[in-house]
Nucleic acid binder design. Structure first.
Length: 200
DNA sequence: AATATGATGTAA
DNA sequence: TACATCATATTT
C-alpha cells in the first residue's frame, strides 16, 4: 500500500457498532492493533496503533459503575461504541470505549498507543495517551465514529495470537485476579509489561 | 520499589 | 470535611 494512502482509509473505515455490542473482555483483546484516530482542527488526522487495553465490567469491583450510577460515570451505562472519558487522580484524563449494552456498565480502557514517526512511549499510559491526543471530558459520550472528531479504525491485517499478551490489570485495589489486560508483545510503547520466562 | 503530587467526585 | 482514586514523575 502506498505511503500516503494509508491515513486516507482511516476516515473511510471504522469499527461498526456491532463490534462494541459485546462483553468488554471480548472486545479488549480485539482492539489491540486497531488505530485510534483524531481529526485535528486543521483537518489533519492524528493516529496511532492501540497496543494496550483493559476490560471493566459492572459485576466486578474495579469498575467505575460497580457501586453506583452517577453523572460522572453515566456514559459507562449508556449505549456501546461511545467514548467514556474520566479524570483520574484529578490530573489525568483517561479514555475508554463503551461496550456491551445500555444500562450495564461495561467498557475498555485504552492504556497505550504507539504513534508512527514519534518517540516511543509518548502515549505509554492512559494519561499520556489522552494528553497526546488532546482528549478531555468534552469528548465524553461522543460516538466513536468518523463523523465525529475521534474514532477507531480496524486492523489492516489479523493479529497473530503470539503477539498478544494477557495479564492482570494495573492500578486497581480490588479485582486484581481477573486477567483482563492485553498488550502487544512487540511494542515498546506498552506502559508496563509482565516478566516472561524465556523459552527453554 | 517507594513516594510525592494533584483535584475531582462521593459519602459522612 | 474526609476519603479514595482504572497515574505519572522522580527518587532510592
Amino acid at each position: 500500500m502506498a505511503e500516503g494512502q494509508y491515513p486516507a482509509t482511516l476516515a473511510e473505515i471504522s469499527l461498526p457498532g456491532s463490534f462494541f455490542a459485546r462483553p468488554a473482555q471480548a472486545v479488549a483483546p480485539e482492539l489491540i492493533g486497531c488505530r485510534l484516530v483524531k481529526r485535528q482542527p486543521s483537518g489533519a488526522l492524528l493516529w496511532g496503533v492501540i497496543v494496550e487495553t483493559e476490560a471493566y465490567c459492572q459485576s466486578e469491583p474495579a469498575c467505575h459503575g460497580h457501586r453506583r450510577r452517577s453523572p460522572s460515570n453515566e456514559t459507562l451505562f449508556g449505549e456501546p461504541g461511545r467514548f467514556y472519558v474520566y479524570v483520574s487522580y484529578g490530573i489525568h484524563h483517561c479514555v475508554n470505549v463503551t461496550t456491551g449494552r445500555s444500562n450495564w456498565a461495561n467498557g475498555v480502557l485504552l492504556r497505550a498507543v504507539e504513534l508512527p514517526g514519534e518517540p516511543y512511549r509518548v502515549a505509554a499510559g492512559p494519561g499520556l495517551l489522552a494528553r497526546r491526543f488532546g482528549i478531555d471530558r468534552s469528548f465524553d459520550a461522543t460516538p466513536a465514529h468518523p463523523d465525529q472528531q475521534l474514532w477507531i479504525a480496524p486492523r489492516l491485517e489479523p493479529l497473530s495470537s503470539a503477539e498478544l499478551v494477557q495479564a492482570s490489570r494495573i492500578g486497581i485495589s480490588q479485582g486484581q485476579a481477573l486477567p483482563w489486560r492485553w498488550y502487544l508483545r512487540s511494542s515498546r510503547s506498552v506502559s508496563r509489561r509482565v516478566k516472561e520466562r524465556p523459552l527453554p
